[in-house]
């Protein structure tokens, strides 16, 4: 299985994501922002960082990069797409997921590990976790405060589209939301960084199953 990782100017978790993909047992493929080309990948990770220096709004400029055209088509066709941190912000700006990420309520950049709960395992990116399982993941962001209008939040909750929830809310996020998925459940956005805890050298492998899940989900379909 080939898993692509987009690289924008200012991405800084792309190497970590490629490494996590490799450790999960898939072939990592770099997807350069200026090429409208997905290189026949079977899944895409939009990694964290500060694409385009977070100018205007995080993700607002990256959302119009050339690679985003085929990526949007891929997502709409049911292809598994994961956005992490800035990648989540990009997917929101691209309207592949609803809502927005606002400035943390504490007005500080938050960089630490937080306990989270896997709420849903029926997405290609969480299939190998247990529902209700608690995992500790690093967060590192300034704009992680998930916001959507009341109707959208209700819809997300009723449709079981809150995939990951904070057990200790670091940023003021509505309903402690740390990650959501789209209606078709193939597009997932997570604020915490599973790729940073996908190697024992980093002190934990609790995030690796995110990347293994997408392999398992693809395997099940074949």
């Amino acid at each position: 299985m080939r898993i692509g990782v987009t690289v924008f100017p200012g991405s800084n978790c792309d190497r970590d994501a490629l490494h996590a993909v490799e450790r999960a047992g898939a072939t990592p493929v770099e997807l350069w922002h200026a090429e409208a080309e997905l290189k026949a990948v079977d899944a895409v990770v939009v990694p964290g960082g500060f694409s385009y220096g977070d100018y205007l709004r995080p993700g607002a400029i990256a959302r119009f990069a050339k690679v985003m055209g085929p990526l949007e088509e891929f997502a709409k066709g049911g292809g598994p797409v994961l956005g992490v941190c800035n990648g989540f912000q990009v997917l929101l700006e691209a309207h592949l997921l609803p809502g927005a990420l606002l400035r943390n309520t504490g007005m500080r950049f938050v960089s630490r590990r937080v306990r989270t709960r896997i709420e849903k395992t029926d997405t290609p990116w969480t299939a190998l976790y247990g529902e209700g399982e608690t995992i500790t993941l690093p967060v590192a962001h300034n704009e992680g405060n998930y916001y959507a209008d009341e109707g959208t939040i209700r819809e997300l909750e009723e449709e079981g589209r809150v995939v990951l929830r904070y057990l200790e809310n670091p940023n003021g996020s509505a309903n402690d939301i740390a990650g959501i998925c789209n209606e078709a459940r193939n597009v997932v956005g997570l604020m915490p960084h599973p790729e940073r805890v996908s190697d024992p050298a980093l002190g934990s492998e609790e995030g690796l199953r995110v990347f293994r899940s997408v392999l398992a989900a693809a395997g099940a379909k074949v």
Binding site: R57, A60, I61, F64, P98, A100
Partner: peptide
């Protein structure tokens, strides 16, 4: 399309 995010 770009300068403002109509969600927020």
């Amino acid at each position: 399309r770009l300068l403002a995010n109509p969600t927020t």
